[in-house]
Computed example of a mutant assay.
Amino acid sequence: MSTPLILVDELCKLITDATAELVLEAKTGPPRPPSVVAGFLDDDEPRPGKPPDDEFARAVPFVLVRFRSGEDTQDVGTATVRLIATTYSKHGQGWRDPLNVLERIRQAIITRRPLARHFDLQLPIKWEQPDEQPWPYWIAWMTTTWAIGRPILTEMEEDAYYG
């Protein structure tokens, strides 16, 4: 069955493959590709707002694959997923890194449609980078919408609900 949770997991796999060859600066450790995380960064003690600096610093660079919303209409079910790329650089041109990550992802999702033979990308894809950046971290995100499967009632199930 096609669900938003499966969509998020499939996107994580695709993004991991698409960004595997990127080498991005890290605040801690050697340069590396971004890690891909479904939902939110882990935290033993969730707090509103900014995550603890040490956890955040260890995680960067990363891409969060975050379910945003879903909708069923008469014709189709859709799920909206935001992809948040976060990188680290003390250089003024560091703003380029998250855009490079998103471009790799954009190319992968456009050329590998439908995703996992169940999810069809709905255009347009939207991406943006806010003017204000939390230097030395750089952030940009992409918002995607996907057609997802909807439950189909069998005749017996219809009788049970509407009988």
Rank of each mutant, 00 (worst) to 15 (best):
T144K: 11
L121V: 09
E71W: 04
R112V: 04
M142Q: 13
V63M: 12
D42N: 14
T143P: 05
E103L: 07
V8H: 02
S35I: 13
D42Q: 13
V101R: 04
S69F: 08
E25L: 12
R104D: 03
T111I: 02
W146L: 14
P46E: 09
K126Q: 03
L115Q: 04
I125L: 05
P114M: 01
V76T: 13
L7M: 11
R113Y: 00
R113D: 05
M142I: 12
A108T: 11
K126A: 06
V81W: 03
A116Q: 11
Q122Y: 02
T87S: 06
A85F: 00
D44E: 07
L24Y: 07
L83I: 10
G29R: 07
E10N: 01
Q122E: 06
P130L: 03
T19Q: 04
P30A: 15
I139Y: 11
G77A: 15
E21W: 13
T86G: 01
V63G: 08
R117Q: 03
R106F: 03
A26K: 09
F62P: 01
D131V: 12
A18N: 12
D9P: 06
F40W: 11
K90C: 07
W141S: 15
W141F: 14
S35N: 13
A20C: 04
T111H: 00
A116P: 02
L83T: 05
A20S: 06
L14K: 03
R58D: 01
M142T: 11
A108R: 08
P34D: 03
R96Y: 07
P136Y: 11
R112C: 08
A59L: 10
L24K: 08
E103C: 00
T28V: 13
W95Y: 07
H118L: 09
P33C: 10
L83G: 06
L22E: 04
W141N: 14
L24P: 10
A57T: 12
L14E: 02
R117S: 04
L83K: 03
R117N: 05
L24D: 09
W138K: 08
N100L: 14
R82N: 02
